[in-house]
């Protein structure tokens, strides 16, 4: 699913939707390529989302009503911008809480002294 420089990309598979929602929550609207580049920059090249993984996830979130699409003409071609819907904004908060809980639980298991 990902081309990932980190040792186990499977660990990141379940977080793709949360990553997309979080990025869109911080930006008004983003297009597909912009999302891949933003993830690359934020993780300093450690996490690289492939096109084959990104677009199915975006389409799925759109079908679920969490994302809305806006088309705009850019350099003589159409660009599809994705933005969060109201439900999407609520879902982002819940997904981020879920992820934080997961990290906390894992921390308890992996490194109990730190918790």
């Amino acid at each position: 699913m990902y081309i990932c420089n980190m040792s186990n990309s499977k660990l990141y598979k379940g977080s793709l939707n949360t990553i997309i929602l979080k990025l869109l929550n911080e930006h008004d609207k983003m297009y597909g390529y912009e999302i891949t580049q933003k993830v690359k920059v934020l993780t300093k090249g450690e996490l690289n989302i492939t096109e084959g993984a990104l677009y199915p996830a975006l389409h799925k979130l759109e079908a679920e009503g969490l994302l809305d699409v806006e088309l705009a003409k850019v350099d003589n071609r159409l660009r599809k911008y994705y933005k969060l819907t109201e439900t999407g904004t609520k879902e982002t908060i819940s997904k981020l809480n879920e992820l934080a809980e997961y990290i906390k639980t894992m921390q308890k298991l992996v490194n109990p002294k730190l918790v």
């Binding site: 297009y31 597909g32 390529y33 912009e34 580049q37 096109e51 677009y55 850019v74 350099d75 071609r77 159409l78 660009r79 599809k80």
Partner: peptide, 14 residues
């Protein structure tokens, strides 16, 4: 195609 085209053009330029 329109979504793929935009992605490919942006990626190539980059």
């Amino acid at each position: 195609r329109l979504e793929l085209l935009d992605h490919i053009v942006s990626a190539i330029e980059d």
